[in-house]
Amino acid sequence: MNIFRLAGDLSHLAAIIILLLKIWKTRSCAGISGKSQILFALVFTTRYLDLLTSFISLYNTCMKIIYIGCAYATVHLIYMKFKATYDGNHDTFRIEFLIVPVGGLSFLVNHDFSPLEILWTFSIYLESVAILPQLFLISKTGEAETITTHYLFCLGVYRALYLFNWIWRFYFEGFFDMIAIVAGVVQTILYCDFFYLYVTKGEKVAIPS
């Protein structure tokens, strides 16, 4: 564990909690892509199946359970509790166009051809593109609420910090995981356009379509 990794995890946690609280407090999930949230729930579910097979640390186990729990709570709020406020008309990204190629790729390029490992690989690839429905929704509606942009910022910062974590681990531990690194770079690049707008425009962000 290094400072980049810890800060990355906390930024990820902050993003998830910001989103949950936003929906809960405003009693509305307007402007939030339910499809991205379904993809994140799928990402956590397929990645953290190792909760059942290996123990790494108390920190690791707790964070995994919190991430999974929050992901499903968010999906529940969007599709059940505050369904009436859900922006279904604009949330029209076809997630099968992400899931099918990502599923195929995880069968072809993985560290080990075993069920758990393929699912882990699937989750890494899927996470890298899971934000696309959300960015698509913002480009369709033309703007995002301030709190939504904070959520996206934290989510982008999380993967960027992981990149520094991997550089650190390569130098000090000789460890590198090519699949995670390549996917992490792709994921961070997807946020770059957003980062630029967040920093220059501050408050309200509109992604030009």
């Binding site: 190792d50 690791n60 560290h111 995981d177």
Partner: peptide, 10 residues
């Protein structure tokens, strides 16, 4: 270490 199955990151 490349590609271990026991992943310690989140």
């Amino acid at each position: 270490i490349i590609g271990r199955t026991r992943h310690d990151e989140l």
